[in-house]
Structure formats: structure tokens, C-alpha cells
């Protein structure tokens, strides 16, 4: 079957070794340093606040936006995380998730807006998103390690690749779903394209965009274990330790920690979407 002899493997390695690393190495170092500062800042911030205080804050937010049930669940979840002595790990995971989600939103929403309003952009963006969502995450872990070393930074990058697509897709969907007569009305009264976007399209797309952010956050959490394989500390590390020591209990405790975090984050961000 070898008709063409396609040495993709060698090409890629040559590309990475001879061009990407030597030419762009410094650039990636800058990104790496900036991200490290952000991740460490968020992690330390979360760890600095006493667990009790953070729990109460979380309960207040949950109560206000998502109701009593979610508030109660948040209390139980936080007490659980503390009781199995996984609070610091949970905060480390949360920090990675928050940073990755933040980057996904900052990049994803503008890209989503562009691809909703510009057919050419949409044509380019779509296959890239398909690629990001379906390429096995281990494949891009390798270059992530090469470019950013081990630790939180490659974890955030890998998480971004996997989790950003829903933010882009749902933003584009939300904007496309704005009824045509509403857009016509806005234009007919003399809106500029900017006014149309910020006063009409984005506010009306907001519930859909929030659903996208919610999905991004869930996908980011689901990357916790993978992230830990490249040195990001957190609940994923606990699960990995459980696996390597064949310690079922430890694995379950770590896994449940991720689930608790996921449910609390999901319910609260979903309620944001409904409010918007």
C-alpha cells in the first residue's frame, strides 16, 4: 500500500526540532511564564482563603443564583472534600479549570462571533474545532510538554484545546439564532454594526453563550486526570496515584472529588445562563 512514501513522522519531528523550538522557543517561554504566574496566583489565592470561608461564599452564590438545593449540595460537597483531606488538591484542580475556562472564553467568544457573522471565517474555524475536539488528547500532550515543560502550563494548554470548542460553537449558534426581524429592526433604526452586536445580538445570545461556557467548564474538569499525567497537581494526581498503587479506595475518593466539583460548578454556571 505504500505508494507515496509519506514520511509525516520525520517531517513533523524535523519541523519541531529544527524550527519550532529554536525559532519560537523564546515566544513559548514568555507564554509559559505568564501562564505560570496566573495559575500560581489563582491556586495560591484559592488555597489562601480558609476552606470554611470559601465554602460559605460558595453557598451564598449557589443560594442566590441556583436555589436552596444546590446550596445544600455545595455544603455537603465542600465538607466531603475537607473530610477526605482533598481540599488542597480540589483547589489546584479548580485553579487549572478556571484558568483554562477563562482563556477559552476570552479566545472562544470573539472567534464565535466572527464565525457567526463571516462565512469565510466559519469555513476555516469549523474544521479546526473538529480537529481540537476529536484528536486524542495524548497526541497534543507531547508537543505541549516539549514547548511548555511539565506542570500546570501544558495542562492548561491541553485543557484549552479540548475544552474551548463549545465556547466557540455555542457563541456562534447563539448569534445565528437571533431572529432576523429583530436584527432588521435594529438596523432599520440606524444601528452601527457594533451597536447591533453589543445591544442586540450578544444580549439575546447570552443564554446560549452561557450554556457554552458551562460545557467548556465541564470538559475542562474532565481533563483533570489527563492534566495530572503531565505534572499538573490536583485531584487527577490522587486518581493517578490510586491507579499506580492499585488502591481502589484512593482512586474512588479522587474520582468522587472531581464529580463533586463538577456538579457544583455545573449547577451554578447553568443558573447564570438562565438568569442572563
Amino acid at each position: 500500500m505504500n505508494y507515496f512514501d509519506f514520511p509525516l513522522e520525520e517531517w513533523t519531528n524535523t519541523f519541531v526540532d529544527d524550527w519550532l523550538l529554536p525559532v519560537w522557543g523564546d515566544f513559548f517561554d514568555v507564554i509559559s511564564n505568564v501562564l505560570t504566574v496566573i495559575i500560581d496566583g489563582v491556586t495560591n489565592g484559592l488555597l489562601f482563603i480558609p476552606p470554611e470561608v470559601l465554602t460559605i461564599l460558595l453557598i451564598i452564590v449557589a443560594w442566590k443564583y441556583a436555589g436552596k438545593g444546590v446550596a445544600l449540595f455545595s455544603l455537603i460537597g465542600c465538607v466531603f472534600l475537607g473530610s477526605v483531606e482533598l481540599w488542597p488538591e480540589a483547589m489546584q484542580t479548580l485553579a487549572i479549570v478556571l484558568v483554562a475556562t477563562f482563556i477559552s472564553v476570552v479566545i472562544g467568544i470573539p472567534v464565535g462571533i466572527l464565525s457567526a457573522t463571516n462565512a469565510a471565517v466559519d469555513k476555516v474555524v469549523r474544521p479546526i474545532l473538529d480537529f481540537m475536539q476529536t484528536l486524542p488528547s495524548f497526541v497534543y500532550l507531547i508537543p505541549a510538554i516539549l514547548l511548555f515543560g511539565l506542570g500546570g502550563v501544558p495542562a492548561v494548554i491541553a485543557t484549552f484545546v479540548f475544552a474551548a470548542p463549545p465556547a466557540v460553537r455555542m457563541t456562534a449558534l447563539g448569534i445565528r439564532q437571533v431572529p432576523n426581524d429583530v436584527i432588521e429592526a435594529s438596523k432599520a433604526f440606524g444601528s452601527t454594526s457594533k451597536q447591533l452586536l453589543f445591544k442586540v445580538q450578544l444580549p439575546l445570545a447570552m443564554p446560549t453563550i452561557m450554556a457554552g461556557i458551562n460545557q467548556t467548564m465541564m470538559l475542562a474538569l474532565s481533563m483533570a486526570v489527563v492534566a495530572s499525567m503531565i505534572g499538573a497537581p490536583g485531584l487527577g494526581t490522587t486518581v493517578l496515584t490510586g491507579i499506580s498503587r492499585v488502591n481502589v479506595g484512593l482512586g474512588l475518593v479522587g474520582g468522587l472529588g472531581i464529580v463533586v466539583l463538577a456538579i457544583v460548578l455545573d449547577r451554578i454556571t447553568q443558573s447564570f445562563g438562565k438568569k442572563a
Partner: peptide, 14 residues
């Protein structure tokens, strides 16, 4: 100069 009224109202629901 131009005001417009639409068949399906075209109101801003938000």
C-alpha cells in the same frame, strides 16, 4: 428620516 414597524413586531425581548 425612516421609522419602521414590522409584521412580527421585531421587539428586543431582553
Amino acid at each position: 428620516k425612516l421609522g419602521m414597524v414590522f409584521q412580527h413586531f421585531g421587539l428586543f425581548s431582553h
